[in-house]
Write a protein that binds this DNA or RNA. Structure first.
Lengths: 174, 174
DNA sequence: TAATAATCTTAGCGTAATCTAACAATACGA
DNA sequence: TCGTATTGTTAGATTACGCTAAGATTATTA
């Protein structure tokens, strides 16, 4: 999307990020298990991510994220969470299916759609009691909560962020 | 998803379907333009779809869908339309971005998520005036409008279908 | 600490999908 | 109908990514 990484490599990068986040470190084995591939596939991918500057890594050595790797991985991970939340909370989908699908969507949303979707999520999660015509309410919400331009920069708190609101440009409904 | 076709081949198959639908026939060139690939790539894909029984085709000859090819393509195309509609009508996304993303999603939704999403779409398109708490309304809707089991068979009219309703099993919210 | 287990890497292979370049078939206009 | 333009095919190269098998390294434990 905003990198030259393939989808597969984005998955590896995100796995590194998430596993470090949870366990404090990553092993080749952890990544292989998470992505359902063999260790040897992980090794190749890690070499690739090292060559493109997203991780620090040498054979048999410690795996860590570079600064750009961290930023990119965080973006991916948080995008994943947004979808996951939508699937689980709104659609009522099981966590497994939600995760699997979210993992795919990270790579497949056009930026414009992604921006809109984040708006949508914000809308439905900050308006738990909707007491007027749903469509109009959402349109109105979009008019005053356009997050499109900046979502790539820091998508962290879109679910409950009170600060990141701006109102430039059109919102696609007009 | 429900075939052994790769995502790329599904795209080719859907292109054949859609172009025939619009123009009454398909040329290699048409497919190449639509999918942004070279003619030679199309030729290879068509041979593949012929070998797997989805299309009738011979070099320099007419391209048509077999029965299974038609069924499969229709399913893909209609799934595409559901997402496209969501992006355009609900999210207010531009048609191009909507199409591009919908094209990806066809292949990447776990069946459970797909089923839920169709429910969701039906909900928001048949309840234009939502006058009660949104989350509860949707949950209730899901309880009495479970389309999960049958969506693969004939997803044609889910946007405004009054007949395809059943209420077996859980709906994921309980 | 030496043997064994676990983990990781390398090398080589297979498949899918794309491309370019050269060639073949078809369509069309003079 | 001949010649050119358009369209389609084939062959071969490339890239991405997975796998297996074999070997290297590191960890464990007797």
């Amino acid at each position: 999307m905003s990198t030259d990484l393939t989808e597969a490599l984005e998955d590896y990068l995100e796995a590194v990020y998430d596993i470090i986040d949870v366990k404090g470190g990553v092993r080749v084995k952890d990544i292989a298990e998470r992505l359902h591939v063999k260790n040897s596939s992980v090794t190749v991918a890690l070499r690739n991510l090292r060559d493109t500057g997203f991780i620090n890594y040498e054979p048999y050595g410690v795996i860590s994220l570079t600064e750009s790797g961290f930023d990119e991985a965080r973006r991916l991970s948080e995008t994943h969470q947004v979808f996951r939340r939508f699937f689980v909370r709104i659609l009522g989908v099981g966590k497994e299916a939600a995760d699997e699908t979210a993992c795919r969507l990270e790579h497949t949303m056009a930026p414009e759609v992604m921006a809109r979707f984040l708006q949508f999520m914000k809308f439905i999660t900050t308006n738990r009691a909707i007491d007027e015509q749903w469509g109009e309410a959402f349109k109105q919400f979009c008019r005053t909560n356009d997050v499109s331009p900046g979502y790539l920069a820091s998508p962290v708190n879109y679910m409950n962020d009170k600060t990141r609101v701006s109102q430039e440009s059109g919102n696609g409904f007009d």
